[in-house]
Computed example of a mutant assay.
Amino acid sequence: MSSNLTIKGARIFDCMEWHDDSLLVVEAGRIVSIVAEKPDRTGETVDTRGHILVPGFIDLQVNGGGGVLFNEQPTLEGIRKICEVHARFGTTALLPTLITDTREVTKAAIEAGVEAKAAGIPGFLGLHLEGPHLSMMRKGAHDPSLIRPMQERDLDELLACMRALGCLMVTVAPENTTIEQVERLADAGITVSLGHTDASFEIACAYAAAGARVVTHLFNAMSGLGHREPGVVGAALATGTFFAGIIADGFHVEPAAMDIAIRSKQGPGQIFLVTDAMSTIGTDMKRFHLNGRKVVREGGRLMLHDGTLAGADTNMLSSVRFVNEKLGVPLEEALRMASAYPADAVGIANHKGRLLPGADADFVLLTPGLELESSWIGGRKIFESNVDM
């Protein structure tokens, strides 16, 4: 394929406005412009025949897919498979996410991430380490025997990981992480997220002031919004610097609560979509294991034996449809929640999440009915479905 590419025949949403009767111009994997007339240039022209062209989705919390759970296969090939599978659902950049595990597994995951970056795995953005420095009280599906306080050794390893990868998110709880540690992580450019915590509103705000900028899966595994103690949920909504991921599968959060949160969130930080997807995505598997514990897939849920939700059985395109169709969120905002806002949350808005000149040519083509036609990364088609217009 030529490094010069022109996409015509699509209604284009650049994440700010729609462009009708326009063309997307790509060169060397980056967007040159959106123009009304075809420029005088050589290269390939693709006629999309009336599709919708939107920025590729960015998923900051992906535990697995295609039968691979990152905790069980923390390898280069594991990352490759996860990225390949999620591209089938419009995700063009993601953070493979490691749930609380042993030091050995964490080390292997980081090494795999460094290999994936060196190999240029399409869709690989960096890593998300969700734990082990969490709250026992709000552990969720995380193995309590592996939860522990952050030590100097842990902090040094995270700083080294950031230097090697350039994009790293860590989910921590104030119960097992100090203000000073968060300041050092944030100063190094690491995206610090509060999650699996029973912290108070006041403590959550103090950690935001120290540099924490994201809240992991809003409402789930955190102190709730009370009328005298607003908790982490209240801090996430009231503190403008916080971004917050949310799982839009209809099980993790009641739709009415999602709607209230989206409408009440103070900016500039926004609520964005995450899948929290597990190995079941793109497969018909009915069960898998997490830290030696069986997880069962049933009725759209993934559950431990006691009914605790263990990740989610959803993908990003389904999440976009959910907030658009079930909550009535305008399509434009639903798309921003899957692309622009997660890019903003991890500080990559200069080259991801919007179809602007100089940005990576990561985009998806959708039918008017919001079915995926194809996914593109760096101006290269990496997945094509067989849906008809």
Rank of each mutant, 00 (worst) to 15 (best):
I12G: 13
M16P: 08
W18T: 13
H19S: 06
D20E: 12
L23V: 08
L23K: 00
L24T: 00
V25K: 00
I31V: 12
I34Y: 10
A36F: 12
E37I: 13
K38H: 01
P39G: 08
P39D: 05
D47S: 04
R49W: 10
G50E: 03
L60I: 07
G65R: 09
V68M: 15
Q73P: 10
L76N: 09
I79L: 12
H86V: 00
F89Y: 05
I99Y: 03
D101N: 13
D101R: 09
E104S: 14
T106N: 06
E115D: 03
E115L: 12
A118N: 10
A119V: 07
L125S: 02
H128L: 02
L129C: 15
E130R: 05
H133L: 14
M136E: 00
M136F: 03
H142G: 09
H142R: 07
D143E: 04
D143K: 08
R148L: 01
D154A: 06
L155T: 07
D156H: 12
A160M: 08
M162T: 07
N176C: 13
I179W: 08
E183F: 06
R184A: 12
L185M: 13
L185C: 09
G189A: 10
T191K: 01
V192S: 13
S193A: 14
L194N: 06
G195L: 11
T197Y: 04
D198P: 00
F201Y: 15
A204Y: 07
V214L: 10
T216L: 04
F219G: 08
M222E: 04
G226M: 01
H227A: 08
R228W: 04
E229Y: 13
V232C: 11
A236Q: 15
L237G: 14
A238L: 15
A238I: 15
G240H: 01
A244F: 00
A248E: 02
D249I: 03
P255Y: 00
A256P: 04
M258S: 11
Q270L: 06
I271R: 06
F272G: 03
D276F: 03
M278L: 13
T280G: 10
G282M: 07
F288C: 13
G292K: 05
G292S: 13
V295K: 05
R297F: 04
L302K: 09
D306T: 02
D306G: 01
G307K: 11
T308V: 07
T308R: 05
L309V: 08
D313R: 10
D313Y: 00
N315A: 10
S319K: 06
F322Y: 08
N324A: 05
L331T: 02
E332Q: 15
E332C: 15
E333V: 14
L335K: 06
R336H: 07
M337K: 02
M337I: 02
S339M: 05
Y341G: 12
A343Q: 03
V346K: 02
G347P: 01
A349D: 09
H351F: 05
K352H: 13
P357R: 12
A359S: 09
A359T: 07
L365M: 09
G369C: 07
E373A: 12
W376E: 05
W376L: 01
G379D: 07
S385W: 11
N386W: 11
V387L: 04
D388C: 11
